[in-house]
Amino acid sequence: MGLDLRVPIGMMFGMIGILLVVIGVVTKPDAKTLGVNINLWWGLVLIAFAVFMLLTARHAAAKAKAAAAKKE
């Protein structure tokens, strides 16, 4: 299929990650989360995951392009 699924996955979790980081920055952690700023930390994890997905997608696209160019 022409659509590389890693791109929408990366975009979606990247956006959710940014959202969580923003919430983490503007709110204070409380007893509910045992004093851990879970939004901030988990937001960063999501962003890292998103970057990984987008980078591998870009890498794959570049490789496919090179292969296509070689064919011609």
């Binding site: 969580l20 709110t27 952690p29 409380d30 509910k32 989360t33 879970i38 988990w42 937001g43």
Partner: peptide, 11 residues
């Protein structure tokens, strides 16, 4: 509902 603050709860 016990552990998730807003944001994470949505997730």
């Amino acid at each position: 509902s016990k552990y998730c603050p807003m944001g994470l709860l949505g997730l």
